[in-house]
Nucleic acid binder design. Structure first.
Lengths: 200, 200, 200, 200
DNA sequence: TATGAATGAGTCTTCATTCAT
DNA sequence: TATGAATGAAGACTCATTCAT
C-alpha cells in the first residue's frame, strides 16, 4: 500500500531529480502496463503508475492528457509490441507439426504468458465499453488472424483464434494444467488435416 | 451523480419510504449485476448500486459487509441462475443437429446474450485476481462442461467450452456478425463426427 | 475488526436468542467498561459494546437512551465498585508501615492495575469536557481523599492523592518499573513523620 | 457542521483562494492542537481541523498521510514547543524559594495553563494505546525530569514530576482553586530541605 | 519544460439512532 | 418488552486534475 513512491509531503520518501529523461514517456507506458497486470483497469491510478515508473506524479499528467488517454496509449503500445512478437513467432514455421507445437506452447506457457494473457483480456473487456479501444482490438484481431491465415486460410484462422483465446483463459483460471496432449489434440482438430505453410 | 438523487434532506423527490421490504437483498444483487453489465467491476460503486436498486446508500452497506462481498454474492447469484438456465437449454437435445443449433444460437444470440456474456467475462477477469471468486469460476466451468460432457464426452466438452468462450468474446467485440454458417461449421468440426446424446 | 458480533445480515454469525435475561443491563455496563479499557472513549461504539456483551445491537440502545448515557452509567457503575474496593483496602491498616505498603502496591501493581488506571484516566479526561461526568469525578476524589484523610488528615491526603495519581500515570507509561524502594520513599516522604491511624 | 462552510460549489462564502501558502503545514498542526484542546483525541476529525485551519479538507489529507499521522505530528510539534518553554522557565532559578514559586505558578496558573494541561493529558492517554506516541512521552518525561534534576537531583525530580502531574490534573477538574499556600507546602515538602541550584 | 502543491468530488465504510413488529 | 431492519449523517481517505512557478 503506497509504501513507495507516494507523492506529496505526506510521504516524501526520496527520489532523486532526474531532469532530462528521454524515453520517460515509454517508461511511464511500461509502468502503466505493469499496473494493469497487477490491478487491472479497475485499479489503475496516476499515482500507482508514477510510483512504478519512479517519476513524479505531475510527470504522468504532463505526458498524458487524462487517465483514459494513458490507458489507450498503454494498450496501443502493448498491442504494437505484441503484434510484432506474434508475427515473429511464426516466421520459422514450415510444417503443420511446427505450427501445432508453437500454438500448444502459446496456450501452455503458463506463468510466463500470464502477463500477456491478462493484458489481452483486460483490453478486450475495456474495449467492450470504450469505442476508442475497440479500434485497437479490431486491428489486433485482424493482425493475429492474418498471421495465422497465411498458414491456414482465413476460416481456420478465425476458429483457431477463438479456440486459443478460450483455452488461454481457461488455463489462466484453472489450478491444474491441462495435459499437453489434450491441448495438442484440440488444436490439431481445429487445424484440420490440410497441409500448412505460406503456400497453403 | 444521483440519477434518482438520494442523500440530503433537500430534494426528497421520489422513492416512498419502504420500511418493511423483504427481498431487498435480492433486489440489490440484481441491481449490482445491472451495474456490472453497464460499468464493469472497474465501475461498480455502492452509490450506483443503491441508485439502481432504489434503496438508500446505507441499505447496501447494511446488507453487504463490503463492496467485495457484494460483488462476490452478486456473481454467485448470477452463476446460480445461469447454471440452471444452461442445463435447461440442453434437456431437449436429442440429435447432433439439435445440439449444434443450440450452440450456434448461444454464440450468435447477439444483444440478447450481451448481458450474459459481459457478466461472464467480468467474472472471469475478477476471478483472476480474487481467489474467493475463483471457486465460483471453477464450479461454473465444471458444471458447464458436465452438461456438455453428458452429450459429447469430456474431451470434446472441454474443447467446445473453450471454443464457445472465444467465439462469444469475439462476437461481443466485432461490429459485424460472423455468418451463421461459419459458426456452425466451427462447432461441428469441434464436435467431431460422433453421434450425440445421453447415451453417447 | 468486527469479527465477532457484527449485527445485521452482513455478518450474521449466530448468537442464540436469550429472552428474559435479568442483569443484562449490568452485562452491558461491564462490556462498555471493557471496551473503554481497550479503545477508550474515543473508540467506544454501540456495536462494540453489544458484541462484547453478546447481546443484540438493539438491546444496547433499548437499555440506554444514548451513547453518552451509556458512558455516564458505565463510569458511574465503575466508580461505585472502585470506591467500595478502595475503602475495603484500608480497613485493616493499623500502622504507618501498613499504609505505606498498601500504597506502594497500588502504584506498583502493574498490569493488574492497568484496567483500573486506564479507566480512571479516561474518566478524568472525559469529565474535563462533560459536566455531567464531573459530578462523578468530584465525588470520587472526595471519597478517595476521605478514606485517606481518616488515616492522615486532609492536607496530607490531598497531597498523597495527587502524588499517587501522577506516579500511577508514569508507571503506566514507562517501560521499566520504578524500584519499589523509590516508590516507598516518595510515599513516606509525602506521608510525613506523623503517626497514622483512625485516631491520628 | 462546517463552521466556515467549505465543500460544495454552492456556498463559496469566504476564504480566498490561497494557492501558494508556505507554513500551511504548521497552520494545520496548530489547528489540530486547538481541536485537541477543544474536543480531545476522541473528537478530532479531518473536517474540524481543516475548518479551524481555514484550508480545504483535501489539504489536510494531502499534508498528512492519515489522521493518526496528523495526531502524532501535532503532538510532536507541541512537545517540542513545550520542552523549550519548560527549560526557559527554570533558567533564572537561583534559590530554593525561586523554584518553589515557579512550580506553584505552574500548578495554579489555571485557565491559562488549561491548554497545556489538557494537551499533556490527552497525549498521555493516547500514548497508552499507541506505541508510536510513547516515544514522545518518554522523551518528554525524560526532558522534564532532566530540567528539574539539574536543580534537585534525580530522585526528587521524579517525585516532583509525579506530584505536579497529579496536582495539575486535580486543579483542572476541581471547581474551586486549592489555596496557594497548600500547593506551596506540598511542593516544599517533596522538594525536601536541601539547597537548590545547578550546583546542588 | 516539468513538477510540487493544491483541491473538490467522490469512494467505502461506520455508526447513532429510529422504527415496525 | 425486545430486536432486527433500516437510514441519514458523517468519517477517513483517494484521486483525477488544475495551476503557479
Amino acid at each position: 500500500m503506497g509504501t513507495s513512491g507516494r507523492q506529496g509531503p505526506a510521504g516524501a520518501e526520496g527520489r532523486r531529480a532526474r531532469r532530462h529523461d528521454p524515453q520517460r514517456r515509454t517508461r511511464i507506458l511500461d509502468a502503466a502496463l505493469e499496473v494493469l497486470v497487477a490491478d487491472g483497469v479497475a485499479g489503475i491510478t496516476h499515482r500507482k503508475v508514477a510510483a512504478r515508473a519512479d517519476v513524479p506524479l505531475g510527470s504522468v499528467t504532463y505526458h498524458f492528457a487524462s487517465l483514459a488517454d494513458l490507458l489507450a496509449q498503454a494498450f496501443a503500445w502493448y498491442v504494437g509490441q505484441r503484434t510484432a512478437e506474434y508475427e515473429a513467432l511464426f516466421t520459422e514455421v514450415a510444417t503443420r507439426a511446427d505450427l501445432i507445437e508453437i500454438l500448444v506452447d502459446l496456450v501452455q506457457a503458463g506463468p510466463s504468458r500470464h502477463r500477456g494473457a491478462v493484458l489481452g483480456f483486460e483490453l478486450h473487456l475495456a474495449a467492450l465499453r470504450d469505442p476508442a479501444l475497440r479500434a485497437l482490438t479490431h486491428e489486433w484481431t485482424r493482425a493475429s488472424r492474418a498471421v495465422l491465415a497465411r498458414l491456414t486460410g482465413p476460416e481456420t484462422a478465425a476458429r483457431l483464434d477463438a479456440l486459443l483465446e478460450g483455452m488461454i483463459m481457461h488455463a489462466l483460471l484453472s489450478t491444474e494444467r491441462e495435459p499437453r496432449e489434450e491441448t495438442r489434440a484440440a488444436i490439431a482438430q481445429t487445424l484440420g488435416p490440410a497441409a500448412v505453410g505460406p503456400g497453403a
